[in-house]
């Protein structure tokens, strides 16, 4: 499962000086219609995510965090407004280009069951690189380095069912960052692990953010997790209620 690697270097940590925001949302709305009920899951949201951000999307259940992440990640299309990711207006591209954007420019960490059960940690982490067609030796170097960086050295051959929830999330993070995406989107990445594990996952993300310049946008309910973010985007009824920096 490989195809052409058309990833560009514009978002590598070395290009931190590039000034355009990685994500730019302008007047984005997402309306769901369920029967006769219309739900404004995302309502007139405008915000930028800058390179190097370590931002948390917070807010009560149903406030639109997941919906917003899905729009940014190109998993869903907005009802109105523009979503620009890494310079690309997602509304202007078709499904297969969207798939390319997800593969090459975005890293995803889901809440749980991120991994392909029949693949080892190594193979899961290498999965997207394989899709991109990165050659084997380079792939091996990058995956081994990344697994080491997420603290999984020596566990490369483990299958997901042979790892703890925290270890599985580390593999998911490794898979997300090994392609050096413009941004890593994580929807409640710590919701299914205990608080101790959550803490260490956050340590990892923060370290990757500081040392490798990986941009993170993650949603959370958890006050401890929020406290670790350097930017807090508070959502309420689909709107951004507040957006401020804090000392991480």
């Amino acid at each position: 499962m490989t195809d052409q690697n058309n990833k560009h270097d514009t978002h590598s940590p070395l290009n931190a000086a590039v000034q355009h925001p990685i994500v730019r949302l302008s007047d984005v709305c997402k309306t769901y219609e369920q029967g006769k009920v219309r739900v404004n899951a995302v309502h007139d949201v405008s915000l930028d995510i800058q390179h190097g951000d370590f931002a948390a999307l917070c807010g009560p259940s149903g406030s639109g965090k997941t919906s917003l992440l899905n729009l940014i990640g190109g998993l869903d299309v907005s009802s109105s407004g523009t979503v620009i990711v890494d310079g690309i207006d997602l509304a202007t591209i078709d499904g297969s280009e969207l798939s390319e954007v997800r593969k090459n420019r975005i890293g995803f960490v889901f809440q749980s069951y991120n991994l392909i059960p029949v693949m080892t940690a190594y193979e899961n982490a290498a999965f997207v690189l394989n899709l991109q067609g990165v050659d084997e030796t380079e792939c091996r170097d990058r995956v081994m380095a990344t697994l080491k960086a997420v603290g999984l050295e020596g566990l490369e051959k483990r299958r997901p069912d042979e790892m703890s929830g925290g270890q599985q999330q580390r593999v998911a993070i490794a898979r997300a960052i090994v392609t050096e995406p413009a941004i890593v989107l994580a929807d409640e990445p710590t919701a299914n692990v205990d608080s101790h594990t959550a803490e260490s996952l956050l340590d990892l993300m923060e370290q990757l953010n500081r040392q490798q310049g990986v941009t993170f946008l993650f949603s959370t309910h958890d006050q401890h997790v929020m406290d670790r973010a350097r930017r807090i985007i508070q959502m309420h009824d689909g709107k951004v209620a507040s957006d401020h920096a804090q000392a991480g």
Partner: peptide, 20 residues
């Protein structure tokens, strides 16, 4: 389905899943 969904989300194309 969940697994295929994750695969698609991270960039696997429909025809690649069909091939699988």
């Amino acid at each position: 389905i969940h697994e295929f969904g994750v695969m698609k989300a991270i960039g696997v194309r429909p025809w690649q899943l069909v091939r699988l």
